[in-house]
């Protein structure tokens, strides 16, 4: 496989795991705009353990995941006391605190970043992403998943039904933090280098967008969102120059045109985002859609039996 495709597969797998990390709190009604902070915790923990102690990858990535999960658990208690836009700002502030701390830490390389000795090829993130996907599907099929979704819809009634909603929210937030940390650890080893600039606010925004646009009602949503938004820019990278030369030919420009400016990809991405919000505010994949597909499948199976 070419290096280009290997890189895309790695980043796709990492983004899927990362998106699931944000999906879990969002599915309980808690917007988490601090994704990059959790990812940075996992990435730097893995990088540090690998660079300083030469620990094997499963250990560095595992510890990175636990660190992010424990931090998520600890900050969940104060952070989940805030609601709505304040919660969004609090999670955002958390990510800034993490970034600031790392930037000022000489041990972690400060603004210079850190190289990560142990390299992993694309297969490992892809396999891990497969397991994470199965895990999230399992989680959403349990009563815990049911109470997560109920909490999202109506906290007061969910509480009256006997659900400890605080416990559900804290667990979803902490498990989500751990998954984001796992994504970070895999990132560190896949790209052999970590620098704090790659865990900036834009990353937190993008991953939240993957989740919201993919759909927060089922575990299919983040998968679709992460895949779509990781692959679309790559698709545009090849399609856009062709479109430009086609347009140039249309208006009669004969001489070869240069490739379009890179920022066009982001314009198109932004326009698509707005279109999605208008046309499918509940996200690309909704529950009703899944139910309908399932119903069609089971009724056609019944017809075959009859």
């Amino acid at each position: 496989m070419s290096g280009y495709w290997a890189g895309i597969l790695s980043i796709l797998a990492i983004n899927v795991i990362f998106a699931y990390g944000i999906f879990l709190p969002v599915a309980t009604g808690q917007l988490n705009l601090g994704g990059a902070g959790f990812q940075a915790l996992g990435a730097y923990t893995a990088a540090y353990l690998s660079a300083m102690f030469g620990l094997p990858v499963p250990v560095t990535v595992g510890v990175g995941m636990v660190v992010a999960g424990v931090v998520g658990f600890l900050i969940a208690f104060p952070i989940l006391r805030t609601r709505g836009v304040y919660l969004v700002l609090a999670t955002f502030a958390f990510a800034e605190v993490v970034a600031g701390t790392i930037l000022n830490s000489e041990t972690l390389g400060g603004a210079m970043g850190m190289s990560v000795p142990a390299f992993i090829d694309w297969e490992i993130p892809v396999i891990v992403a497969g397991f994470v996907t199965l895990f999230v599907f399992y989680l959403m099929s349990t009563r815990f998943g049911l109470t997560m979704r109920a909490t999202h819809d109506d906290e007061v009634v969910t509480d009256l039904m006997g659900v400890n909603i605080r416990m559900v929210q804290v667990c979803a937030f902490a498990i989500g933090g751990a998954l984001a940390g796992l994504a970070g650890g895999l990132y560190a080893h896949s790209f052999s280098f970590v620098e704090i600039q790659s865990f900036n606010a834009l990353v937190s925004i993008y991953v939240l967008l993957y989740v919201l646009l993919g759909g927060t009602q089922t575990a299919w949503g983040p998968l679709a969102g992460a895949a779509f938004f990781t692959l679309l820019p790559e698709l545009l990278r090849t399609v856009l120059p062709q479109v430009k030369s086609f347009l140039a030919a249309l208006v009669g420009i004969e001489e070869p045109v240069g490739p379009p400016d890179d920022s066009w990809r982001f314009v198109i991405l932004g326009a698509l985002t707005i279109a999605m919000m208008v046309l499918r505010p509940e996200g690309l994949i909704t529950r009703t859609m899944i139910e309908r597909l399932r119903f069609r499948r089971s009724s056609s199976a019944r017809e075959q039996v009859a």
Partner: peptide, 25 residues
Amino acid sequence: MPHLSVVENVMLGQQARAGNLAGML
């Protein structure tokens, strides 16, 4: 709960009888 199915809404009502750790997982 508007986003839960009918049967899921009813299963939420079982929480008090099924909400221990094993029941949740």
